[in-house]
Amino acid sequence: MQDALKGLLRRHGLIVAFMVFLAGVALNTDAFLSAGNILDVLRQVSITGMMAVGVTFVVLTGRLDLSVGSMLTLLTVIVVDQHNQSGPLMAMIITLAAGCALGAINGVLVGYIGLNSLIVTLAMLSFLQGLVLFYSGGSNVNITNAQDTWFAVFGRASLFGIPVPVVMFLAAAAVAAFVLKFTTFGRQIYGVGGNETASVFSGIDSRRAVFWTYVISGLTTGLAAIIMGSRVMGAQNTIGQGYELTVLAGIILGGTSLLGGSGSIGRTVLGIAMLGFIQNGLLLLGFPYYVQWLVTWAVIIIAVWIDLGAKRGRIFA
């Protein structure tokens, strides 16, 4: 019995600790575990969650994508501006195509040319921020007919009582989880991340696999931009700043390894949701919003350390 408990703690210590946290907050506040509040939290994390779904593909191959924050800004500006110019449907098509194209540039540089992913996507972060200012001319853009566009659906409406962005996020997560678990492409990604050399020896085109993970990351960022544009009905030039780090924090917290090959969409959803509930719980307990950052720090370190220690069989390196 004691051994079983120990094993549970070691394997799912994170979830157990999270449950304890949830229970603790729930006992001290009334609203925390109400359906309304839970949906609220999910709605808040739907943008980072959507992006994290795509970035998880990249991280699973052992690479990074730091460009998604700037990309979110740019794509939000594009969707809002194109909405005014070409109508909502065209705007969405253009946004998603642009997301894929930007991802493809990352993909060529990292996958095919073999440059270091951290630096490439860091350069892209800077480049895209410039592109935002170039595109918007430095001013904020707003949707002109905010009152009567069906575009508002993505950020503001609900489907059977569930906010549409939450539906989109969970649907994207479900599709991504299916791709990773049940398709040959998913298997290739785990192969490349787990052991790139062995995958090449098994006839897998690792460069192509890496390329497509960046395209997927661009696509989900496009979807996130649609939610963002619809929610805000406008876009500032810094709207996505820092999102790349939150997204990575969620992925890492879920337990997906930065070295690649181990992790899943489920873990990412869990990690992102935990970040959301920590934020929400601390706010409900009356702490100022920035206290969540301190807690996030501690949680990331403890969670990853425990995870690593369990794999290694001892705590210290």
Binding site: F182, T183, T184, R187, G191, G194, N195, G261
Partner: peptide
């Protein structure tokens, strides 16, 4: 081998097309 994978996934890795139809495993 991809060491963190099991025997099942390692066995099929070079021949994913043989163990799938329409890209679904």
């Amino acid at each position: 081998l991809v060491l963190m994978m099991g025997g099942r996934e390692n066995t099929s890795l070079p021949h994913l097309q043989l163990f799938s139809s329409g890209s679904i495993m």
